[in-house]
Design a protein around this nucleic acid. Sequence first.
DNA 1: CAAGACATTGCAACCGTTTACGACTAAAAA
DNA 2: TTTTTAGTCGTAAACGGTTGCAATGTCTTG
Lengths: 331, 331
Amino acid sequence: MQKQEVTIYDVAREAKVSMATVSRVVNGNNNVRKETREKVLAVIDRLHYQPNAVAQGLASKRTTTVGLIVPDLTNMHFAELSKGIDDIATMYKYNILLSSVGNTLLNEDQVIQNLLNKQVDGVIYMSNLMSESAQEIFKRTNTPVVLAGTADANQDFPSVTIDYKAAEKEALGLLLKNGKKNLALVVDDGKAYVNKNNRFVAYKDFMEEHNLDNVHIYEDAKTYEDGYELFEKIKADKVDGIIATRDVTAAGIINAAVDAGVSIPDDLEIISAASTNVAKIVRPQLTTVQQPLYDIGAVAMRMLTKLMGDEELDEAHVILPYTLKQSRSTK
Amino acid sequence: MQKQEVTIYDVAREAKVSMATVSRVVNGNNNVRKETREKVLAVIDRLHYQPNAVAQGLASKRTTTVGLIVPDLTNMHFAELSKGIDDIATMYKYNILLSSVGNTLLNEDQVIQNLLNKQVDGVIYMSNLMSESAQEIFKRTNTPVVLAGTADANQDFPSVTIDYKAAEKEALGLLLKNGKKNLALVVDDGKAYVNKNNRFVAYKDFMEEHNLDNVHIYEDAKTYEDGYELFEKIKADKVDGIIATRDVTAAGIINAAVDAGVSIPDDLEIISAASTNVAKIVRPQLTTVQQPLYDIGAVAMRMLTKLMGDEELDEAHVILPYTLKQSRSTK
DNA sequence: CAAGACATTGCAACCGTTTACGACTAAAAA
DNA sequence: TTTTTAGTCGTAAACGGTTGCAATGTCTTG
């Protein structure tokens, strides 16, 4: 990269003012006379001056950039969250520095450290269980973090979620009400926080409360194919009711069941979390727990803007409502 | 943000060397004696020193950050492209500064300018037709740009794509071979480069070459619902063969057709571009044109790294292979 | 032993801004 | 008229690094 074409110096010289004054008009500081402002603006316009955000960042110690930590953008769940985040971020004039943490090329700590080295003003974290070391890193810096669609074990960090336990229990309740007794849980990632501390617990609680002892938990079912193949086991285990964390996985199970001549919802009912329109496309259509993903992202980002502006948060842990949307994969 | 805890000065003082030397060891410059390096590294370790990337960026005029211009991350097409880009970017130690250009809050020019102000070392552009003004902006700066999955009218910028025209003609050829004569084109965005300069042209060429005069182009069919509703018109127009740009739209059409008792592929055949696993989920399964989206993104990013390293490009316009994958929505 | 050659280090300018602080001016108050 | 006061503006020191250049030291080599 060659020397920047036009700097604040050039503008100052041309406008016959000091660079401090130029800086003031660029930043909308109103300690500047109207005529001076106009004169400077005219020069800025004529020279096509654009401030160097890196220099601004160094001098002001604010980069107007937030880091986004996401496991996998091709997972619609995170894509939707990201969209909510992005919209609010641009609304508040922040840019997003993206960090996928899905591939194991870099470990999460390095990724986070890298983001902090780039001096982001804040971070939105929507990965899975946050490691101890990651928590340490965030606590050492005073860079604000908010968790979107997840939480940390101690609730040390602000977060926005839905009530995962309640949602799951409600879904399980529907299956039970419909006469299903051999209920199974299909999760994408056994180590994910929300799964581990909410889904598993809710499921086990529910089974215990209703004296159901046929516990079936299938882990690491992430893809459509995983779901399709999983059906074999499900059938062998005589499962008749399923809660799945991903709708594509659920679609795989449904298609496998249909292909095998199993009747849904008569012989097998299934409920998943809706993140894509797969739930609408698969036949029979999926009964889903609808999370307001976009809103979760948007609210999280809004909270972050407050923290970055040194404002207080009304609530550190926001819980948004979900809805159980019944369709054809349950009675 | 408060004053940075530990700077290169602190390290220099503690290690009893100049900051120049510290800088050298941090940057892996080998003009430094082994013992000195180790001494400095020890101090860095002890003090938990982390370089301030913003200061580095200002001094070195390289930010190791690339801008990503994308219409909509929740569109799997772009999500897959982004993944390829992201993987290669992290491989070469670049960060990604994300810019969605889908919402009309900001216009594209502003978004691009903003990216350039942040001094990105390069840009990957995968939006639609690039405006004249956008091209101007890129040409004014010497920031390299490469287009992923799209191109500009004059091929002024490096790009990586598939041969959209050939793909479309091959798909249309299959429909024709299967005896379908009333062929329609369903596109998401009529103004998108690939549609405007490739799909429309290929379609019209094909129709002309085969003396088919029943031209049907349906624009702005982006979602599943759009597809579902579009079926009415398709039926009224007596269309019996469809090329759709999005698989979700195609899925909508298929489900509407099935719901209406229309037999696929007997009465209606349909081919779409696969970007999600919707193509596999919908029944009958979709025949698709498979684009190597991940690879397009990866290759584009690799090209960008070369440009940012002042290397020459072997080819400025890379064309990757596609495959027509036949399934149940065609005979 | 003198003199290049080379490896190692420090000096200091520079990157393009922001922002205390103080100086200056003109208007308002005394 | 003199003193405050408030509004404008410029000076210069940061911000935390990189890097060309010169200085120094160490080795060869003739």
